[in-house]
């Protein structure tokens, strides 16, 4: 993850690089073309469209809108502000829990024990599962007539007919749990790679000093993981912010708007209402929020410094 920070750190190799003018750009041309056409241009397009009325269902209404879309968003839309709150909560819960539990998991499977390989593969496997598939699995689990609840009822642990996704108070947490199920392995894999690269001598030195396991974790492991944690939490935060697949299929934002995140709301506006102008304005705002928060986070965490 800190590949970026180190790519230019090998002056010896760099000096020997050829300075042929066009070759590198020739090699990079597919990337440059793809990213400008399918990323840069769309972003500019979104910005532009956000100042227009554009709704395929009501073509007579199309035209320049000025700041109408933004006015509607900030003052007239009962969904926008709550969706921001839900997004914030979602990102915070996901990143924190995934990081903490992922780290614990990484440390556990880094220890030596019998059948470590298969055990790792098993606990990491939800990493490869898509949001939609996670939905179909957890729908089965949460459904009051098919779910794990039918078993819990028998032992009297749960009340009859309890439906976690149908309750405004529990739906958010039920969805969060499903996402954690496949999100924790992401951090665990990333952190395990990093934990394995900690020089053994560091631990030995600490052991000689008689440091407790906890102190070794605190003074050796954690500092070593610092940069990776900063970068991976940032990337994961952005990713969870933008994560639509699971919520779109599991709760579709409900009950009410209790699980409607901003990107999910954008997807709904785009696919159900076909209101592209307003959807673009929402997108622009989400993008600005994400960019500002990311820069702030990198500044505050002082990446790469001690």
């Amino acid at each position: 993850m800190n590949a970026l920070a180190t790519t230019s750190a090998r002056p010896g190799a760099a000096r020997r690089r050829r300075r042929r003018g066009l070759t590198p750009w020739l090699l990079l041309s597919p990337i440059v073309v793809l990213i400008s056409v399918f990323m840069a241009y769309p972003i500019i397009n979104v910005l532009y469209t956000s100042f227009f009325h554009k709704n395929v269902v009501m073509p007579w209404n199309d035209g320049f809108a000025g700041l109408d879309n933004y006015r509607r968003m900030f003052f007239d839309d009962p969904t926008f502000w709550p969706s921001l709150g839900v997004t914030g909560r979602w990102v915070l819960v996901q990143v924190t829990c995934q990081l903490v539990v992922g780290l614990v998991l990484a440390l556990i499977v880094n220890e030596r024990f019998r059948a470590r390989g298969p055990a790792r593969a098993l606990v990491f496997s939800p990493w490869a599962i898509s949001g939609v598939l996670t939905t179909s699995i957890w729908l089965l689990l949460y459904n009051p007539s098919t779910g794990i609840i039918t078993v819990l009822e028998k032992f009297g642990v749960s009340s009859v007919g309890f439906a976690p996704l149908a309750d405004v108070d529990t739906a958010f947490w039920a969805a969060a749990l499903a996402e954690l199920w496949r999100g924790i392995p992401f951090f665990a894999i990333l952190l395990l790679a990093e934990v394995q690269s900690i020089p053994h001598e560091l631990y030995e030195a600490a052991s000689v000093d008689g440091a407790s396991r906890w102190r070794r974790f605190w003074h050796v492991t954690l500092p070593h993981l610092r940069n990776v944690i900063i970068l991976s939490t940032l990337l994961r935060g952005v990713w969870e912010f933008n994560n639509v697949d699971l919520l779109y299929t599991l709760t579709n934002g409900g009950p009410g708007t209790s699980t409607t995140t901003l990107p999910l709301y954008v997807a709904q506006v785009a696919t159900i209402s076909s209101d592209f102008g307003y959807g673009s304005a929402l997108t622009t705002v989400a993008f600005v929020i994400l960019l500002v928060l990311s820069i702030l986070y990198l500044r505050l965490s002082r990446l790469g410094k001690d």
Binding site: V57, M58, T79, D167, V168, G253, G254, P255, G256, T257, T260, Q268, I272, S273
Partner: peptide, 24 residues
């Protein structure tokens, strides 16, 4: 009304859930 579906579906369905949940 061209807006009929989007009113009945995307605008009001979430609110009806809030009614059932006792929030509205």
């Amino acid at each position: 009304l061209p807006e009929y579906s989007s009113i009945i579906r995307s605008d009001m369905e979430p609110v009806f859930q809030q009614v059932l949940a006792g929030q509205v």
